[in-house]
Every structure is written in C-alpha cells, then in structure tokens.
C-alpha cells in the first residue's frame, strides 16, 4: 500500500503549518505521533514504526547525552551515579528532538509515495521533463555504482591488492577501487547520451501524461512550496 502524492502534499501542509505556529514540545510530539499513525493506517505496514525508530533514535540518545549530561552551558541540577544531570539541557534536547521528529515523520510520509505515481503526478503538473529525467537517471545509477564498487573490490582482492583489514590498507586501496568506478561511469555517459537521443528524448515537445487535475491538489502543491521553506526557517529559529 502506498500514499498518493496529493495526500503526501496535504499532510506536508497540515503538519508543517501546525509545527510552524507552535513550538510546544508536547504539541510537536503529538503531530509526529498522529502522522506516524496516519501513515501506519494508510500503508498497513508496521515497517513505518521501525523506520521512524531507526531514523530518530540516533538523534534522541546523543542529544540527551550531549545536553542533558555533558554540555556545560546548562547548569547541573543533580547527580546520578556520579553523572551530572542538567534539567534545562534535557528540556533543550527533547525540544530539538521534537522539531526533528516532525520532519522525520514527514520524510517517512514521502518515502511511502509510489515512485511511478509520483513521476506521473509531476509530469501532469508540467514539471519540466529534464528535471524528472535528472532525478530518475541519478536514482537509477546509484545501485549500479554500489554494485560496481563491490565487484571492483572483489577483483582487486582476487589480484592480491590488499584492501583491508587495517586502516592503512583500506585508505591505500581507495584509488584502486574508486577510480575504475568513476572512469567507467564517465565513459558510459557518452553511450547513455546517444541512447537517450535515439529514444527521442528532447526532440519534440513532451505532452506528458494526462491525469485528472483537481484544483484543490494544485492549491495544496503551491501552498506546500511556500510553507516548507517557512518550516525550515522556523526550525533554525529564524522565524
């Protein structure tokens, strides 16, 4: 089950606006929990919760440790097994985490949008095909680089070139692994360009997929473009 792009835009607007106009910790955490619950119901996948925990735990634990225990800018309020506890620091850590968590929940919301639906949706909204092609091409090439990097690593190992286990060997092996990946990809760029040309890319005006366009979702789209930068400014305390 996936989320439709229009719905993802809708949730982005609602959650960004709510978090924009309030910086109460409880309120922001409630927005996060509600959004996670909505995604959970929409996708019927328990992975949503696991994803949220995997993404947010690396922030919560270090934040509590840095500001609640170590940061000398906050006054020490008590001791716990010789460990200084700073209440203001804990409050600051939770507040920062609440801000981050809304953003992470929104990101998970977008991760559940089906890729093909998203591309059709963007084309239907007259987003230039060059922009869509750039994103799709780059995303498609990432696994190729990983696979190629892994196969070059195995080939170099087979040739007896040390690629580990100590740090010196690993650093010394960087050029012998990364350079072949870069040069092969750059050389392939020529062929990819000819392939695109032979498939007719950019040779005529692309009309796009004709999807029914609701005025409301376009309105949501425009508003989200305006609200997202405001949310980022709010997060960095400039608003």
């Amino acid at each position: 089950m996936s989320i439709s792009p229009a719905r993802a835009v809708g949730w982005t607007i609602i959650c960004s606006s709510l978090s924009l106009f309030s910086s109460l910790i409880i309120f922001e955490l409630s927005i996060t929990l509600s959004l996670i619950l909505v995604i959970l119901i929409s996708t019927m996948s328990i992975k949503v919760i696991t994803r949220f925990i995997i993404l947010s735990a690396p922030f919560l634990i270090p934040l509590l440790l840095i500001h609640g225990v170590i940061n000398p800018q906050f006054e020490q309020t008590s001791l716990f097994f010789l460990m200084p506890i700073r209440n203001d620091g804990i409050l600051f850590a939770v507040s920062t985490y609440a801000n981050i968590s809304v953003f992470l929940a929104l990101a998970i919301n977008w991760w559940h949008v089906d890729r093909d639906n998203m591309i059709d949706w963007l084309i239907a909204r007259k987003i230039p095909s060059i922009f869509i092609c750039l994103i799709a091409q780059s995303a498609a090439m990432i696994p190729l680089i990983e696979r190629r990097g892994f196969s070059v690593l195995r080939s170099q190992n087979a040739r007896g070139i040390p690629t580990g286990p100590n740090l010196f060997h690993r650093i010394k092996a960087i050029p012998s692994i990364i350079l072949p990946v870069i040069t092969s990809l750059m050389n392939e760029a020529d062929h990819r360009s000819y392939t695109l040309w032979s498939r007719g890319f950019g040779q005529s005006q692309f009309s796009g997929v004709q999807l029914p366009l609701g005025q409301r979702s376009d309105f949501f789209y425009i508003i989200s473009v305006l609200i997202l930068p405001l949310t980022v400014l709010h997060m960095i305390d400039l608003l």
Binding site: Q137, M141, I177, L185, A189
Partner: peptide, 23 residues
C-alpha cells in the same frame, strides 16, 4: 544532462561504497 546525473549518482553511490570499505 547525463554528466549531471553521473555526478549526482557518484556523490551518493561513492558515499555508500566508502561505507562498504569502512573508510
């Protein structure tokens, strides 16, 4: 356009390869 795609993919893909090498 293709060079842009390759460079973007290199930025992200090589980040993952360096993880693979534990660099």
């Amino acid at each position: 356009l293709i060079f842009i795609s390759v460079c973007i993919a290199l930025n992200i893909g090589l980040g993952k390869v360096s993880n693979l090498l534990s660099l």
